[in-house]
Structures are given as structure tokens and as C-alpha cells.
Simulated assay, not measured.
Amino acid sequence: MADEAGAVASVSTGTAARRIGVSPITLRSWDRRYGIGPARQDGRHRRWTPADLAVLDEMCRLTAAGVPPAEAARAARERGGGPPPAPGVRRPEAGPGPPLGDVRLECRGLSRAALRLDAPVVDELLTSFVDEYGLVRAWEDLMMPTLRAVGRRWASAGDKYVEAEHLLSWHVSSALRRVPAAPPARTGAGPVLLACVPGEQHTLPIEALTAALAERGLPTRMFGAAVPATALDEAARRTGPRAV
């Protein structure tokens, strides 16, 4: 996106961190120590342009490959987007931007953090997604596509990245369970029963549904993985659910 003067849109530090897959603290540290950051502006929040993000992207790639940060910063400025702009250069404000473009970039950032096994950043990103986009959109547009992408990564490389998928799955589950429930709706209807069929061990989709229903104040009973049909039938008989 560009304005009438041809200047490209810029993003906040928090958005830049989500797109790259690091924490805002890391970005500020890289800026302070190595000069990897946008131009400073008096009285204005700092904004990151696509050129700034290209430098960050290269810095992230190099440090993940084991290059020392100071050396990575020098190389990133040369390869990613050139030297930092001169102080005092005005940055344009970001426009609304295409949501799907932002989502794809944020999926990439989350995937990178998972592949680095950077659990604190994975947790921070997931929390920020739910806070910013809401549970349903965060699950559909960010969590689920990233889980699929990381799963494809290890499926195409043997078991090389299976630990990254397990770590990401664990933190997605934790993020879903942190979503606060609304006060129970006074409908008088029974709960919604959620369970995986026999042999199914992947619970994340029904964990997401459980969290979404609770967020709306609807009572649930979650039974998890591989529930025998007879056990689920007995649970339904005892609870009188509105849906299973």
C-alpha cells in the first residue's frame, strides 16, 4: 500500500514482531545494540516500513543459522534493505492494509518461532493473536494454518521438525484454555458434549470449539481424545445435552 506521495505503509513494533516471529523486546534490543530499526521521530511512535522488515527478516534468518548477532546485523543491513534511514526521516502512518496479507505474515512469524523452539515467543504471539483478532479468527486464520504449515514441514523432512509441531500444539492448547468464559447463558438447555471418536487423538479442533462456546456463555462437557462410543452414549444419557 502507498500514499499519494508513493510512500509505503509502515507498521508498529508489535506488528513487526508478530510478522518476523520474535518478541518486541528482542526488536528493541537489536535496535539499541546493532542499529536494526526504523528512523527515530520526535514525539511519534516508531514505524517499520517494508525495507525495515526486510532487514529484520534477514537478521532473523542469519541468527537462526548461528551467525553472531553483531555480524548478522551488518550483513542484514547490506542484504535485506540497506543501511537504516537517516534520523528525522518522516515515516507514513499505516493504512488498514489487507487482513489476509497480515495474517499470512503473522503465520510465518509464528511458524518461525515454533521451529526455533522459542516457547516464550510462541506463547506471546498466540496471546496477542487472541487479544487482537478474537478467538475464532485467531484459530481459523492463524493457529490452524500455522499448525498445518509446521506439520507439512516435518512430514516432508522425516521426523526432523516433529518437536516443533508438538511444542506449537501444546502452546495452542494452552492459549485456548486461557480464553475467559462468559457468564453462563440462562437458557435452561443442557450442555454441548465434545469428544473425539474412537482412535482419534487430535483434540485441538474441539478444544477450539469448547473455548468458543464457553466464550459465548454456553455450557460444555469436554471429554478429549478417543472416547468409546458406549462411554459417550452414557454421558449423553446422564447429561441431556443440547448437542453432541
Rank of each mutant, 00 (worst) to 15 (best):
G81A: 08
G97Y: 09
P87N: 10
L105G: 12
G88W: 11
L105W: 04
P84L: 13
A94S: 15
P92F: 06
V89D: 11
G66C: 07
G81Y: 08
R91I: 12
P84I: 15
A70T: 07
A65M: 00
G80Q: 06
D102Q: 12
A94P: 14
V103L: 08
P83E: 12
L100G: 02
V103E: 13
E93K: 13
P98W: 08
A64F: 03
E106Y: 06
G88K: 10
G81E: 11
A75D: 11
R74P: 02
P69L: 01
G88Y: 12
R104G: 10
G66N: 08
R74F: 02
E93G: 14
V67S: 00
G88F: 12
R104V: 14
R90G: 14
P85L: 14
A70H: 09
G88I: 14
A76V: 07
P87H: 05
A75W: 01
G82S: 06
R104Q: 11
R90W: 06
G81Q: 07
G101I: 04
L100V: 08
P96V: 09
G101V: 13
G97D: 12
D102N: 13
A73T: 02
G82I: 08
A75Y: 01
G82H: 05
G81C: 06
V103A: 13
A94G: 15
R91L: 15
P92N: 10
R90P: 14
A75F: 02
G88T: 12
A64Q: 10
P83F: 04
P87F: 11
G66R: 05
A64P: 03
P83S: 10
G82F: 03
P83G: 07
E106G: 02
R91H: 13
